[in-house]
Amino acid sequence: MSPYFITLIVNNQRYVLEIGNRPGGVKPSHTLAHTLRENLGLTGTKVGCNKGECGACTVLLEGKPVLSCLVLTVECDGKSITTIEGLEDSQTGKLDPIQQSFLESGAFQCGFCTPGMIMSVKALLSSSSSPTDEEIREALSGHYCRCISHYHVLEAVTRALHKSR
């Protein structure tokens, strides 16, 4: 049987991956989170529960936030994906304003939930320039943070909104 390939555009870079059991290949059962972390080395995407319950693995698929532990890689053929590593300016290393706001607001403690939260905020602010407080909380409601950095995260989102104005 001839090999079968899929293409992923991750953080504006094109990856061609072989489907199958060979080392380095993508199995049909592999999740996007697994492929990003294990095949592409993009470990900024965190896996908390691996069952779609905690929000940690959130990435953008065609600009929309998805739980990458619930998406199969083979479903993403030809699609564009943004991970936390793709937010900063690839030329200058300058942080995305949302990353910068999280940094300035100290919007994390252990930091394990942070990449997922930043991706959800990125999606929210890309689709709405002036979300209400309720909309911000709703957008973040699927993210589990056990240290309770929520209050500083809300401050960071407000800070990012001010920056964008």
């Binding site: 993009l42 470990t43 900024g44 995407t45 991970t83 936390i84 590593e85 937010l87 900063e88 942080l95 990353q99 910068q100 999280f102 940094l103 300035e104 100290g106 994390f108 930091g111 942070t114 990449p115 930043i118």
Partner: peptide, 11 residues
């Protein structure tokens, strides 16, 4: 900012 803040927000 925390010394590791950059690492954390960059993943």
């Amino acid at each position: 900012p925390r010394k590791d803040a950059g690492e954390i927000v960059r993943g």
